[in-house]
Design a protein around this nucleic acid. Structure first.
Lengths: 159, 159
DNA sequence: TCGAATCCCCATCATCCCGATAGGGTTTCG
DNA sequence: CGAAACCCTATCGGGATGATGGGGATTCGA
């Protein structure tokens, strides 16, 4: 399960990406109350999340009046997988199926023989492939055009 | 995350499937202490899980002396996806991306426009495809043959 | 220089889930 | 009858989750 925290984090950074796309000249810096409003996230809670994302190097912060948060890198270079890992931890359904944070199971005799691990590794790989390939820029909607998004949705709906 | 509960459940049913494969004549019925031992699961905890799986129709139980649990259907007809859904709930990372248990997000304006939902739907679909296609029989090891499993593992390892 | 806006940090909180155990009731076989 | 098994309910500690509050530090702009 994606936690609410990670979801707010994604939405917040998407907001930043959108603001950046609107004014490509310099990096958009938004104060937290504005991010919170646009992302529909509780202000105080979001604050903790953004602090965390700053420590992880996803955003830069500017203190003092007219301060705020900005993306540390271009939105085309921030993969959702990294973001989610930073907030929620490994993508794999179980630790023994993780590549980035492998930990053996206590209740399994031979990890190499474990069929469950093998299946969960497949799930992890499939998930990682999607999330590695989806950048922040891909989920930031420059300006929502109803006709296009409805069409796109119909396609994904069918899958 | 796959809960420990679901993992024990999978392992327990795999044990049942293995016992059934060893003696294909009639369905194997094993007492819980034996299942617990082979699956390396705490006996009492497993009891609650198997009770639950019975209510969901995955296993039949026999009461009284020389009783036990048996698969309600052939192991080739029980998909991991159904098992996991029964114990852990929806496969989708977020409720609004679930097919079998859709619930709209409170913090999203237009579900149809939500890019996060779209990505998570992809993840869900990929996960479901793997788990729908993997049957209990696929994770039950009839008799472990080290050479073969090592080879298989090398393949999945590379992925 | 002052003050307001902002980020920064810590502590706390209620609630729920997770993993597990205890104890006793009911059924059935031998 | 009695032993072995399933069945059910209650409980419990610990940790994660989703927040909120208060107050300190920093900086811009008037």
């Amino acid at each position: 399960m994606l936690t609410q925290k990670a979801k707010y984090g994604l939405k917040a950074l998407a907001v930043l990406a959108e603001a950046g796309a609107a004014a490509p000249a310099r990096r958009a810096t938004l104060p937290i109350h504005e991010i919170a409003e646009r992302a529909r996230a509780p202000r105080k809670f979001l604050e903790a999340i953004l602090l965390d994302l700053r420590r992880h190097g996803f955003v830069d912060s500017l203190r003092g009046k007219s301060g705020g948060y900005a993306l540390a890198r271009p939105a085309t270079q921030i993969a959702l997988s990294d973001l989610i890992r930073a907030i929620d931890g490994p993508l794999a359904p179980i630790p023994c199926a993780s590549l980035t944070a492998y930990r053996p199971c206590v209740d399994c005799a031979e990890p190499a023989d474990c069929a469950i691990r093998r299946v969960m590794r497949q799930v992890r790989d499939a998930t990682a492939e999607i999330l590695d390939g989806t950048m922040l820029a891909d989920i930031a909607t420059p300006t929502p055009r109803p006709a296009v998004t409805a069409l796109l949705d119909a396609v994904t709906e069918r899958a």
